[in-house]
């Protein structure tokens, strides 16, 4: 546990001196801010015709898309850079287990992503003041829980991909391609017809819908947790494979 924390803390600190992390944070907050502003002003302008107050979903849905596209940028460096500079040799000859290394790195990125999510929490609070009698807090809770679970699983997959490469850019694009593949898996599944149940079960975004609607379905929680575990196990395996080469 101590090693996990040591590694996670280094990675977390590193994000604050990394330009990539700042670009991600800027993009994240800027886009969410824009959506928030435009949705709220539109709702105000059309309040006479559609007297429905905007809820937290005006934030959650753009955030899902943003998370899908930006998480690979947070994970691409994690292991690939160590492979490239040779510092991996240092970590692999230190008394640290391979899984501790992978999980520690994942934890570091997860903490940074949580920091980003925490920063966006200002919008639901502001919205709560704007809307009378306040927004549905259950939706806020389930929405953010879903976002956290999805972020964790995407980061775990990203760490695993990063462990395969010694080039950050390659790690980024492969992670992104994988995310996109899992995203569009449902239209593809319904087009083929056969095996669509299995394929749509794998869909990353579908599992988010329950959280979006304000319910917490255990099967969806299990889905994200198992995807996280899978990513971390694969990442450990990839690190071990590197030893044998």
């Amino acid at each position: 546990m101590r090693n996990l924390w040591t590694i996670a803390r280094r990675e977390y600190k590193l994000y604050f001196i990394s330009p990539v992390a700042y670009v991600v944070a800027f993009l994240f907050l800027l886009v969410i801010g824009y959506f928030f502003f435009s949705e709220v002003t539109t709702a105000v302008a059309y309040s006479m015709y559609y007297p429905t107050a905007p809820g937290v979903e005006i934030l959650i849905s753009p955030m899902v898309t943003l998370i899908l596209f930006t998480m690979p940028a947070l994970t691409m460096r994690l292991v690939a850079e160590e492979n490239r500079t040779g510092t991996m040799e240092l970590l692999l000859t230190a008394p640290v287990k391979d899984w501790e290394l992978v999980v520690g790195k994942w934890m570091g990125s997860f903490l940074f992503a949580l920091t980003l999510l925490a920063a966006t929490f200002i919008y639901p609070i502001v919205l709560n003041f704007l809307v009378d009698p306040g927004i549905d807090q259950g939706l806020v809770f389930s929405g953010y829980l879903g976002l956290i679970l999805m972020t964790g699983s995407l980061l775990a997959v990203g760490v695993a991909i990063s462990a395969l490469f010694s080039n950050q850019v390659a790690a980024f694009f492969v992670s992104l391609a994988l995310v996109l593949a899992v995203w569009i898996i449902r239209p593809a599944a319904s087009a083929t017809g056969t095996g669509s149940d299995v394929l749509s079960y794998l869909n990353l975004v579908d599992h988010f819908l329950t959280f979006y609607r304000g319910t917490i379905d255990l099967s969806d929680v299990v889905y994200y947790l198992s995807l996280t575990t899978l990513g971390l196990v694969l990442g450990t395996v990839f690190v071990e494979i590197r030893r044998w080469r």
Binding site: N3, T6, I17, T85, A94, P95
Partner: peptide, 25 residues
Amino acid sequence: LPETVPLYNDMTVYDYLKFMADLRH
């Protein structure tokens, strides 16, 4: 001490050694 002397360029000397010392408990 590996041949390539792998070090983290974005850390200070102290932080780097502290990190390695922490990994060794």
